[in-house]
């Protein structure tokens, strides 16, 4: 067995176990951390496939940004996940049975050398995966690339349309108005004539 095969199985085993932890962990924070581990090992697998750009992006974007944000949210929300997942445990036996059957069937169909794929020839040392991806992405695949951008735009619009609500009777300050404020708007100088206090008023109070 080659060294890279050993590394593959090592990463693959960790990936599967951490994936399993994501859905079985009782504490949502643990689940999120297991997902981080899953991403890391997936990145390792991609490095093995010489797709270093994708591997680095996975770590930077998913582990660095998405999962950190996700962890924040999970820690801030007080969700009793056990209550939510009561049905998960109820359905687990039958789900496990179906999943097990599907795995057996898939192994029967897809096991071995079904696709007849052979490992590609190793690339020369100065081959840049990133450069190739960049060239393809902005030329041949520019149409799907733009479409993906539109999908993200729709996601942003949808998220804002669904969550931005203006409640009635909320005291709020418009910063644009606030910074434009002038002295004239706040201070009013009134010209008062000096006059004697009225004796009659004082007597009344007394």
């Amino acid at each position: 067995m080659e060294f890279s095969t050993v590394v593959f199985y090592f990463f693959a085993a960790i990936l599967l176990l951490s994936g399993l932890r994501v859905i079985t962990a009782k504490n949502p924070v643990h689940a999120a951390l297991a997902l981080v581990l899953a991403f890391f090992t997936a990145a390792g697998l991609w490095i093995l496939l010489e797709a270093e750009f994708l591997a680095i992006t996975l770590v930077l974007v998913y582990v660095g940004a998405v999962m950190v944000l996700f962890l924040f949210v999970v820690m801030m929300l007080d969700i009793n996940i056990e209550q939510l997942r009561q049905q998960f445990w109820d359905y687990l036996p039958i789900a496990a049975l179906v999943a097990g059957l599907m795995i057996v069937q898939m192994v029967l169909v897809l096991g071995g050398e079904t696709f007849g794929l052979t490992a590609p020839a190793p690339k020369p040392a100065d081959y840049s995966n990133t450069r190739e991806l960049g060239l393809l992405l902005y030329t041949e695949y520019v149409y799907p690339f733009e479409l993906a951008a539109v999908i993200l735009l729709v996601a942003i619009v949808a998220a804002i349309a669904l969550t931005l609500r203006r409640r009635q009777g909320v005291k709020w300050v418009d910063p644009a108005v606030q910074v434009k404020v002038k002295r004239e708007g706040r201070v009013r100088l009134v010209n008062l004539k000096p006059q004697k206090p009225e004796l009659k008023a004082e007597e009344d109070e007394a």
């Binding site: 695949y141 479409l147 993906a148 999908i151 729709v154 619009v157 949808a158």
Partner: peptide
């Protein structure tokens, strides 16, 4: 297949919202 799938997702996402 890629554009087929992306079009589908674009449609679906707008409809969910």
């Amino acid at each position: 297949l890629l554009t087929l799938y992306l079009g589908l997702e674009l449609l679906s996402l707008a409809l969910y919202a």
